[in-house]
Design a protein around this nucleic acid. Sequence first.
DNA 1: TTGTAAGCGTTATCAG
DNA 2: CTGATAACGCTTACAA
Lengths: 333, 333
Amino acid sequence: MLKNQNPKITIYDVASEADVSLATVSRVLNYPEKVKPETRERVLDAINRLGYRPNAIARGLASRKSTTVALIVPDTSRASVAEMINGVADIARKYDYSVLLKVTNSEEDTEREVWQEVLASQVDGILYLNDEITDENIKQVESAMVPVVLCNTKDDLNRAPSVSIDFEESFYRATKTFVEKGKKDILLVSTRRAYSVNAMKERGFTRAMDEAGLEPKIIRTSGRISVNYDYFTDYLNENKPEAAIVVRDSIAVSFINAASNLGINVPEELEVLGFQNTKASKMSRPTLSSIDNPIYDIGAVSMRLLTKLMNEEAIDDTNVVLPHNIVWRNSTK
Amino acid sequence: MLKNQNPKITIYDVASEADVSLATVSRVLNYPEKVKPETRERVLDAINRLGYRPNAIARGLASRKSTTVALIVPDTSRASVAEMINGVADIARKYDYSVLLKVTNSEEDTEREVWQEVLASQVDGILYLNDEITDENIKQVESAMVPVVLCNTKDDLNRAPSVSIDFEESFYRATKTFVEKGKKDILLVSTRRAYSVNAMKERGFTRAMDEAGLEPKIIRTSGRISVNYDYFTDYLNENKPEAAIVVRDSIAVSFINAASNLGINVPEELEVLGFQNTKASKMSRPTLSSIDNPIYDIGAVSMRLLTKLMNEEAIDDTNVVLPHNIVWRNSTK
DNA sequence: TTGTAAGCGTTATCAG
DNA sequence: CTGATAACGCTTACAA
């Protein structure tokens, strides 16, 4: 690290080097077409020679735009959020936006703080990524002075722009697939915590079961791997479902492992379908069939939508629903 | 989103509300002890009443500090980087730093661009997270005008501050454990791409094998799950190692799956040890023993080290080596 | 097409 | 302990 060296060169240095005023330098940077080609060349030359890079902060202050967006996430270690971040980052780079990362750890206090910080930080837009949208969140979104996009979630009432698949429909269709195969005893494995997206999944499941005149059985677990395993073992000792649809791949893998350990043959006696299509689905044995949630695309499309909102471009629908499909592997027949 | 509403309130508004000069407001924010308690109260009151939040950008321009660090990562979807980001984010928040996330996609061009952007963005420090440190990287580090910390990697020559475990030692010790159990035919499964950290792991393995007078067998695979699986199947048809140490958990799981599929009993006939101790190790069957790389801590400690560097605090050693241990599960005896 | 000058919202240096 | 006032490095009318 070179300190006190490489004295920061500013727009003034470039101006005098190119023998123009600083306004002209600024123009070639922002509106090159407004500058006569020759002088433009001269300025560009000077910029290269000096290795000048405009100070993003000064630029932000003067233009009242930071070309930065905040990305608020609960926890980066969940496979679903990590891959989404890649999508966001790629598109952000493409449109020359910087990404300020804020991790809330799913704690309400932290989340409130984070919103405050974000508003103070002068970002031009916000990407909010969470499994759960509360009314407080919606208020936060509405009171923000910049556009906000919800990624991978959706407010039931469409009060905020969002990008996700149709969770309810995906579980409805998945359930129907099993119904059509003649399964009667179909189980939905959901989470204890009432994530609003899981509520949508449950609705899709229940609707399909109701339509088929079958009883919609739902069990709810915590998220921890070891706890789940024991819980599933107990459950499967008492019950013999023919098929199970699980709201998260990692939970589905625990479910399969518990079943296998009890000598229940997957998929012959019990078919299992996960959700998300993460790497875990390929590593499990048998490999896990899974509803594919196009998470990278969701990140990318969210960021793109946000750029449109920030530029006040016309948009037909601010609630984007991406298509999804089911990847069939060996945990189903 | 409320636009053109909630007119941005500035330090001037607070000043007049509290009937002091803006300088005083600035002081209560930055050096509260330099302000008489009564006026301080008055100002604080005004701040609350108005809901004032200092504009981070203006502050950055005036103070020539952004209280922002850049976090450069190759790809967020790798389990190891995602969890590290959590560690970085937690400590950054604790010290009131913002985190600018830059994803390079492991592409050299993007990486070069990213360094340029980062230098222009006036961050106060840089966290560089990659499996591979090239000489070009070291040059970039050295030419940066702000401190840089390498996370989860290490330059052989200690030319840059870093935080990681002792990769070589961890593999040396792991190998020795197998040697002491009487294994002779021990295999190291590494990657084709010559990541410098994997080179260190290989050195540790080779040293332990050499000391024991055993032949250090190393195979190298690509990173893709399906390709690996076939490759391992072929290999295990021809060879019957007694133990395998694998440079990454996900690869280790593929290796176990390939072995199991061939009827090779893990751990009875073949013991397998992974590296990283990710969630995958608990989901695999048999569960995977793994060298635990304390990745969250590495992120946290890196960020902490960076804060010290940025504040020019005295530091005894800028190359931090964190302890590690091995978690034994069912893929070993 | 280019230059001048007034901000942008803070911090920081000096007086007082 | 507090108040003026000059930066910070850039964008953007407005003039020329």
